[in-house]
Design a binder for these strands. Sequence first.
RNA 1: UCCGGUGUAGCCAAAUUGGUAAGGCACCUCCCUGUUAAGGAGACCACCGUAGGUUCGAAUCCUACCACCGGAGCCA
Length: 465
Amino acid sequence: MKNNWISIQRARQADAIGTVAQIRGWVRTRRDSKGGFSFIEVNDGSCFGNLQIVADGTLPNYQSDVTSLTVGSSVVITGEIKASAGQGQATEMFAHELQVTGTASATEYPLQKKQHTFEKLREWAHLRPRTNTFGAVARVRNRLSYATHSFYQQEGFLYVHTPVITASDCEGAGQMFRVTTLPLDKLPMVAGKVDTAQDFFGKSSYLTVSGQLEGEAYATALGKIYTFGPTFRAENSNTSRHLSEFWMIEPEMAFFDLNDNMDLAERYLKYMLRDLLSHCGEDMDFFEKRIQPGLLASLQLVLDKPFTHLSYTEAVAILQASEEKFEYPVSWGVDLQAEHERYITEKHVQGPVILYNYPKEIKSFYMRLNDDGKTVAAMDVLVPGVGEIIGGSQRDERLDVLTDRMVESGLNPDDYWWYLDLRRYGTVPHAGFGLGLERMVQYSTGMTNIRDVIPFPRTPGNCEF
RNA sequence: UCCGGUGUAGCCAAAUUGGUAAGGCACCUCCCUGUUAAGGAGACCACCGUAGGUUCGAAUCCUACCACCGGAGCCA
């Protein structure tokens, strides 16, 4: 490239010293000395750090442009990269030419060169990626996504695109968003009910809450597959770890049992963390320093030792034996409350833990019934600070058992005819799980609110951007 | 959806508990030839979330509503 446009990430490397190059980005801050020159810090998103530009008073547009350069302005600067004379950065650029691409009114531009609360930044979701924290979150999220693909591809998995729109209104979990083209102000009625036969698909349709069922169809043909896409839940959830729209990674493997499943989940989580620590060092240092001190050591510890495995029964025993006072009492058969899960992962284990073999009553119909007749081959991976990051199970491959469990759960097997076909024809043991990407980003960065780890969060009552 | 909390200038934030709205940052002006959310000086900036009510007087008390935060449920 004739103008030698380089990223700020490259310009900050010591081996860039001596080159004449161009950088393009946004002004983060400006400090000037009235006597002669200004320091301008520019960020272009390529890395956490800024490049310090030394703009000398001899620049032809120094008075007209540089001295009034505001935070948020976009600039194209050509100059020589030199070793920095000051503390705090290895290199800096001596500007030969500085061009202002777009100004940002100092009185109107919301972001200032100081810290804003995350709550306030949510109101400026379109501008918050220009801040240190959200830039770092975006790069971490990108890296975790990339690591997901490289992990599964290396493991011989096939990336499958399961549908976003689904017609089965009871995929298992949660309230669904309805998808319709019917006129809401003039709904076609039949016998006092909406005539859904007239809807776009000839029946009711919804946004998916999981790609699992379709994933199973492909796993029982192609062996090992994974999905990675958006997922929708219309629950009226208002917490720091729930979104109405989030991204989920769902591997599904034929000929895998629960142990294989748990082993894969552990290797996947460790792969992501190792990849993140070795590729996003500067961003991770920021999270360690400003968001959650101790983060790096605790993540490193996760890499170093095997995950703790506890059966549901063992977990209940541990909870009952503990001195901890719980708001909800624990007994075998009850669903574990957040306080219970937190105790197990944060106090008892102090790291990731895999809970498995839950009572069948508190889990989904498709989870494989164990020989004891009381538990199913389910597993949850819990991590400190976030809670459940993975939920999965071995699926029941036995047509009769699965059908019985559907009926027990109040479901009509006829609605799942194609899902049952997978058991009718060449059935195999298989297993899979779902990982919430946002929760993984939370865990990796220490960010406490899930709305701050997705670019434009969708939550009840919030769809501004 | 339930429980608790908060809502004061562009941003952060105080008001002795009913008495007539601190301070900081930013913006603007001035000073300082290498700074590291720069430093120093000055000026400017508020119908105190919205709507009612009590009172001589309300940011402070009451009612309703809205928004946000924390916790819970649902789950990823």
